[in-house]
């Protein structure tokens, strides 16, 4: 008896569960490599340089323009009601809780995570990881873990820099260009935002996104096919999966945190 439709459903389900299992095992191995000796400090610093410092320019530039355009947008609406004084509160809420973590996550995904997946995938393709194994060096410990940890480490830092620069951009446009009172802008910003409700939420989000992006890129790169198509599939897959995960988890965290 043959039922090809049901068979294919079964095969797909098994494959999905297998992939999820591989993902979890890889995550576990990264955690183990992170806490157990040897600690590869030099590798770690190099990866932080690649993922963090090299993302700095794009993150700051994006932050400044996002803050500036948000200020323009908010001013247009608020000034109709004579409520320009609340511009700081509007910009601060939007940036600290939602736009800051999400845009930083997406930017880092596009700039650093894609490169990370491509690098690991091309090392798979050129059998460099096998070479490491032959020298009895665990490639997870030497190659993958420092990259994933760097992603987790730099994400909150880049988030904070993004928001700080964006607030400065919003201030520059709102106060210097549109003529909102500077003191009013800062007062409404500082009164509207609370550490526990807003800033901490942004920090937690960026940390979660860092874990997500780091693990997805590690998984896609490490499990890629050893072909040139495999390298490009790993890169594309990382950007797509990580971006969608960021947006979904953003909603979940916002909903759980309460409004």
């Amino acid at each position: 008896m043959k039922a090809p439709a049901i068979e294919s459903v079964g095969a797909r389900s098994t494959l999905a569960v297998m992939k999820l299992g591989t993902f979890a095992v890889l995550g576990g191995r990264i955690v183990r490599a992170a806490v157990m000796r040897p600690y590869r400090v030099r590798r770690q610093l190099d990866e932080i340089f690649d993922a963090g410092v090299r993302s700095l320019v794009i993150v700051c530039l994006s932050g400044a323009t996002v803050g500036a355009s948000l200020s323009l947008l908010g001013y247009g609406t608020l000034s109709r009601f004579g409520a320009e004084g609340f511009l700081g509160a509007l910009v601060g809420h939007a940036l600290v809780r939602e736009l800051g973590p999400v845009l930083t996550g997406l930017l880092v995904t596009g700039r650093a995570a894609s490169a990370m997946a491509a690098e690991i995938a091309s090392m798979v393709q050129t059998e460099q990881l096998d070479g490491l194994r032959m020298m009895s060096i665990d490639p997870i410990d030497y190659v993958v873990t420092p990259k994933a940890l760097a992603m987790i480490f730099v994400m909150p830092l880049l988030y904070a820099l993004f928001v700080a620069v964006a607030l400065y951009g919003a201030f520059a446009v709102g106060v210097d260009l549109l003529g909102v009172d500077g003191g009013q802008f800062l007062t409404s910003l500082e009164n509207a935002l609370d550490f526990g409700d807003h800033v901490l939420q942004g920090l937690v989000k960026s940390l979660v996104f860092g874990v997500l992006v780091g693990l997805v890129a590690a998984y896609r790169g490490y499990t890629s096919e050893p072909t040139s198509v495999g390298v490009s599939a790993a890169t594309t897959g990382t950007v797509v999966t990580a971006s969608v995960c960021i947006l979904i988890f953003n909603y979940i965290i916002t909903a759980l945190w309460g409004v």
Partner: peptide, 29 residues
């Protein structure tokens, strides 16, 4: 490599300063 370490250090310090600014000044901690 020493230059690189210095740059990484500056990056981390700047990031922590930004977190501090958001927490204390903006967040009112």
């Amino acid at each position: 490599s020493a230059v690189r370490d210095l740059v990484v250090g500056l990056f981390v310090v700047a990031g922590l300063a930004a977190i501090g600014y958001l927490s204390v000044q903006v967040g009112g901690l």
